[in-house]
Design a protein around this nucleic acid. Structure first.
Lengths: 191, 191
DNA sequence: AAAAACCGAATGAACATTCAATCGTCTAAA
DNA sequence: TTTAGACGATTGAATGTTCATTCGGTTTTT
């Protein structure tokens, strides 16, 4: 593994465990088995490290989504594959979920980045456009909105698992039901 | 306004604008027109300030939810009132939304707090229990899950507004449609 | 006149960043 | 095949700054 990835990985772990604050460069250095100075050889400064980490993570999301999508399937199948693949990924990579959630609510996520073309947003947009185009999705809702709502539902579902896994018996959670719930909301409504 | 609320308000604003980091006590003091020492008269330390702020904010959510609920209505109406009232509140109090989102993904939100009885969670739970009891909601899904999913949808919707308000013409957003989308997902499914 | 609330300069710890020195590897002349 | 030297990568101690917190003294409230 190259140094940059070591640093990314250590930063993600640190943020997962100690929050966006609570990850001093000295700790990043120690946890990635690298000297403090080395980090500054690869990154301009801490902000730059965070920003590059964001793009690194976004790319991972795209990879997962692509690997689990088959555009020749009907859209409901594609949706279910997407939903469960992303959920499984976030469950496995809790640090990624934590990082993204914190990043999106931090000053790093500027208007600039929000509105500039973002590969992940573009992927999501084009995915849901497919569903709209072939008439399997509720009409009259913009793909961007579907994307955010669906992605939000995945994150929420991941959190349900974390939060309630101790309190509530897993069988009682009806977790599989959540994807259906979302699908019933966004599918073409028959009237 | 008492000093404590001044401090809460300044902290919320600071976190909205500069993130969870980026709100040093010196700034909190300045923005709330209070001396640094005074903060420590009201709060044990910074962590304590954040924790008390959390409970303060939670109470605000409960107040908004209560003020807009009429248990004698049918559940669909109650749901729509709830959804739109909470959304309007978060839209107006962006700092609250930012604070909560960051808090829930920070180390402050310990297992302890997650599992301990939380007045806001209890409110949500009992609200959705009503809907389940009278058969207007999809059967077989726990109220806690409905609560998290619905609340997540509100937050997502608020974010859609922030992010896309500049890029996309508001009329095209079909924002009213989102609550319907969520309702169609959680309502009793006819088969 | 006692107690409570408030002030803000002072303190010390934690932090991001720098930089002079060292290491490893590659190139090319001998 | 050896060797000089060059250049990028790496190191970690040193630096200066920012920050949370303290505390002796002042003002306000009871």
């Amino acid at each position: 593994m190259n140094k940059k990835e070591q640093i990314f990985s250590a930063t993600l772990d640190l943020i997962r465990d100690h929050g966006f604050h609570g990850c001093p460069m000295s700790m990043v250095a120690k946890n990635s088995n690298v000297a403090a100075g080395t980090i500054y050889h690869h990154f301009e400064n801490k902000d730059d490290l965070i920003m590059e980490l964001y793009h690194y993570v976004i790319q991972k999301l795209i990879d997962v989504a692509n690997e689990n999508d088959d555009p020749s399937m009907d859209f409901k199948t594609r949706f279910m594959n997407f939903w469960h693949a992303m959920k499984a990924f976030y469950m496995q990579e809790k640090s990624v979920q934590r990082f993204i959630d914190q990043f999106l609510n931090s000053p790093f996520y500027t208007e600039e980045i929000q509105t500039s073309d973002n590969k992940w947003h573009l992927w999501l947009r084009s995915f849901f456009e497919d569903g709209i185009r072939n008439g399997e999705l509720r009409s009259g809702v913009r793909p961007e909105i579907l994307a955010i709502m669906v992605h939000g539902s995945i994150i929420s579902s991941v959190k349900v698992n974390y939060y309630h896994s101790k309190k509530i018996n897993k069988d009682q959670l009806n977790l599989g039901e959540i994807a259906n719930m979302v699908w019933d909301g966004i599918k073409k409504q028959d009237e």
